[in-house]
């Protein structure tokens, strides 16, 4: 079964890194996985996204036009990707930076104030990306937080090891965030 997950936001939100953590987690689960970034003559602060494809079979496409799960961390990404969620798919919306709007009836919406949560509970909006993976974990069931935690160790370079506990906390916070509350 092939699943495509897109993570999108603006430059600096750690979108590519979150994708890399997710892809590493799938690798640790012994799945086939590809990670593909949007790249181009990008400018700082512009929109950025990456596609993570996971499958038990060989993967062809690394960038599908539509996706099963999409995390959007800002309004521009919501506008761009909401129409591209597959029927029955899920969009995780960072309501701190995007409006709580539902334009479609054939997909699932998960709303969470990701940036605000990261700021208030973790003291830094830089944790938004990893926090969103916690939400993805609980809402998709594709990957466990313990594997994501192991993946963090793969991705965060040795000289940044001190950041791991904070990121693990972010994962947990995302996973335990009461989605019904919204």
């Amino acid at each position: 079964m092939e699943k495509v997950i897109v993570i999108a936001g603006f430059g600096g939100q750690g979108v590519l890194l979150a994708g890399e953590v997710l892809a590493n987690a799938f690798m640790l689960d012994n799945k086939n996985v590809t990670w593909y970034p949007s790249y181009g003559a990008e400018m700082r602060g512009g929109t950025v996204n990456c596609s993570v494809t996971v499958s038990d079979d060989e993967i062809g496409n690394v960038e599908s036009p539509t996706s099963d799960f999409i995390i959007v961390l800002n309004q521009a990404s919501f506008d761009k990707f909401e129409p591209l969620v597959k029927e029955g798919g899920t969009i995780i919306v960072n309501t701190s930076l995007a409006n709580k709007v539902q334009n479609r009836h054939d997909i699932n919406y998960v709303f969470a104030p990701i940036t605000r949560l990261a700021e208030e509970k973790l003291g830094s909006n830089k944790m938004s990306n990893i926090l969103s993976l916690g939400i993805l974990s609980v809402s998709s069931g594709l990957v466990s937080t313990s594997t994501l935690e192991k993946a963090l160790n793969n991705v965060i370079p040795p000289h940044r090891r001190n950041l791991i506990p904070k990121n693990v906390e972010a994962l947990k916070l995302g996973y335990e965030y009461d989605l019904l509350k919204v």
């Binding site: 890399e20 892809a23 690798m27 086939n32 996985v33 590809t34 990670w35 593909y36 970034p37 790249y39 690394v62």
Partner: peptide
């Protein structure tokens, strides 16, 4: 090509 260069895979 650019795709293979930029994509990640195990």
């Amino acid at each position: 090509d650019g795709m293979l260069g930029q994509m990640m895979e195990p």
